[in-house]
Design a protein around this nucleic acid. Structure first.
Lengths: 151, 151
DNA sequence: TTGACGCCCATAAACCCCCATGTTATCCCA
DNA sequence: TGGGATAACATGGGGGTTTATGGGCGTCAA
């Protein structure tokens, strides 16, 4: 398996460290990531975490823009400046910085959520609230489209 | 890693010195920059800092302008005349000059922001305000394009 | 001589390596 | 099928190293 799947919650210790779920670590290794990079989500109190290939996508997008226009500058600011490195120590833990806590509201626990090519970290309660809203939207979408397959 | 990524805030000491984040220093060394050059941003209260190749970037920008117009002349004056060298001392610190303080509003603390090929220095509060505006613009961009790059 | 600047060192805090412990899940065998 | 052995994992903490920061001192130039 080489995709980030499933979710779990781990506790932050007195030094501010938290274990990355073992399954995610094995994906990290399989993909050959030497370091993890966390990007601040634009519209959610979460961080997107992945390898540096996470940035490649954004940089390709930026390359399409006129480098001297505001859009290119904004995009660069977002993907280069609004993130932080997450070093895995040799026990597979990362340190949760103030930068991350501020944006996510994370206190004592961290929820890890697989998203395929990357994963996210959330404050567990906020994740639960977000999950409820997502399910609601999906349900409305299905009803609006006239039912679809049963079940 | 050979790109300037992530951001952090450091304090200026009584002599006007501030530590460049260790990670940025290692990028500077990896890129072989013997000296850093700081340019006033055209449209933001920040300095762009990088190697001398930073000038290439500005010169490209100027090359886009009609050389008979005043804009090109102004830009040339701005970037060739309104920059300053930043020497790294052997503890990895730079001195924040009055010239920099005036343009950025920097007082006691400096925010370092990675921008890929270069980095920026900001007054922390102004950076926070700028970041909020950038995220707002990017969100609008995403909504306008009906989905956008991520998710 | 004074002030800006470079070089040096001291110290506290942050960070990372290593090992220990407890808990949970898995497996094996009676 | 139950129960104990085992392995995998999350978590806690000790201690060394790196980093940020503060300050002393000599040099050079105005």
């Amino acid at each position: 398996m080489d995709r980030f799947l499933s979710s779990s919650v781990n506790r932050i210790d007195a030094k501010g460290r938290v274990s990355v779920p073992a399954h995610f670590r094995s994906v990290v290794q399989k993909r050959g990531y030497l370091e993890l990079y966390a990007l601040r989500c634009l519209d959610q109190p979460a961080m997107d975490v992945g390898g540096l290939d996470l940035l490649d996508r954004y940089e390709q997008r930026i390359a399409q823009e006129d480098p001297f226009q505001q859009a290119a500058d904004d995009m660069s600011f977002f993907c280069h400046g609004d993130g932080s490195f997450l070093k895995l120590d040799q026990d597979g833990r990362i340190t949760v910085t103030d930068f991350i806590r501020e944006h996510t509201g994370i206190g004592q626990e961290v929820a890890f959520v697989g998203r395929g090519q990357f994963f996210q970290i959330w404050e567990p309660d906020r994740l639960a609230g977000h999950g409820a809203k997502v399910r609601e939207r999906l349900l409305m979408l299905r009803q609006a489209s006239g039912g679809g397959p049963s079940r």
